[in-house]
Write a protein that binds this DNA or RNA. Sequence first.
DNA 1: GTGGTCTAGACCACT
DNA 2: GTGGTCTAGACCACG
Lengths: 120, 120, 120, 120
Amino acid sequence: MFWKFDANRPVYLQIKEQFRSAVLSGQYPPGSRIPSVRELAISAKVNPNTMQRAMAELEQEGLLVSGGTLGKFVTEEQSIIEAIRQKAVTDAIKSAAARFRELGLGMEEAAALLVQQEEV
Amino acid sequence: MFWKFDANRPVYLQIKEQFRSAVLSGQYPPGSRIPSVRELAISAKVNPNTMQRAMAELEQEGLLVSGGTLGKFVTEEQSIIEAIRQKAVTDAIKSAAARFRELGLGMEEAAALLVQQEEV
Amino acid sequence: MFWKFDANRPVYLQIKEQFRSAVLSGQYPPGSRIPSVRELAISAKVNPNTMQRAMAELEQEGLLVSGGTLGKFVTEEQSIIEAIRQKAVTDAIKSAAARFRELGLGMEEAAALLVQQEEV
Amino acid sequence: MFWKFDANRPVYLQIKEQFRSAVLSGQYPPGSRIPSVRELAISAKVNPNTMQRAMAELEQEGLLVSGGTLGKFVTEEQSIIEAIRQKAVTDAIKSAAARFRELGLGMEEAAALLVQQEEV
DNA sequence: GTGGTCTAGACCACT
DNA sequence: GTGGTCTAGACCACG
């Protein structure tokens, strides 16, 4: 798990986003145990409380379930995961579209730049 | 000029982004006078100090030039504007691409969703 | 605002309960500004962070709305307040009933003891 | 014996309450042998240490007496049982009354809701 | 001064 | 060892 933070947004929100993405992209399969809060905090070079807050919110969101002293686990309910994925993708697209529109960039143009960027 | 702020990022940064976009998209042509900080602050429902800070940074960036007691003006130097546009577009694309990649979304897929979104 | 905490349950949860009750019982009318988090923390002899957490959750619940740097306010939406009151009362009744049942106490019996207790 | 735990309070305290209630409501008559700590722990899906701690405290309270290698038994002294019952009922009533009062709920009103709840 | 975030470090219960 | 809570104290953005 590699972390990258932008200084201008709350770290715990960025942790939520990135960890959610990690789960959605299959890095932590449904039902699997995730690393302990303390380990994750170390890997992200962040205070355990900050990591704890992020994971607690992902738990409240339904993506994670707490196994008490056994650690935290990715939910086994595929429907929840799928719903979260849908929302994440839609949000990302909407937010990018809004930014492009703000810049006066047409969607086809933006789409072309995106594809082209990948080829680099 | 319509403003939309996200609670989780410094307002003055969002003002910079949005005002810069307004200039780049031609809403304020090169050489034109922009509204006073006071007026902009009211339209954005923001403290004048906050607006002042944002405009000062856009001035330092070269996009705006101060006309002393006459107010602030958009720079007339096309090269500066063009450079800023390039950077803004590139940043927006890169940032969107990074987010999509994080979500395990292919660029072609994302591009398709973007175009499709416009049709809605 | 007077606070009373039970050592065996998280303080922030008890703060939520008690403050919610204070609002529901009209101590803080709809739309009114509540004391600052720092003041409340002092009055409850609790760390500001703990109070902050409790108020943030009441905000998420919809009972409070944040006025940014102006402080926090009780929501003006009567419907939300009413819904929260309903839930609070129902929960309290259910929880008491469960406890009484556990003790083999009939509801009529318990009801009598409750009324009698008030007369003391 | 059916167990139900609230995540926000120490499990051993909840075991004490529920087992005490089970005895008071006659599920384990005076002088009868209770299941082994190991069995109880399994039925409650709880660590034996946790169950052990709860039973030890009930023993110290006088409700249970240890029969050495024969297991634990409910005390045969009716006076003790009666005293514990009194305290348990009084505590439950007081605690419910306090909660209702906090919510601005009159005792007659609460009593009515309690009785009504039973009919459902 | 206000809300909000973050760090550092401690303590508790135990799924 | 793990999740969870709490304290103490600091910093930031905003007004």
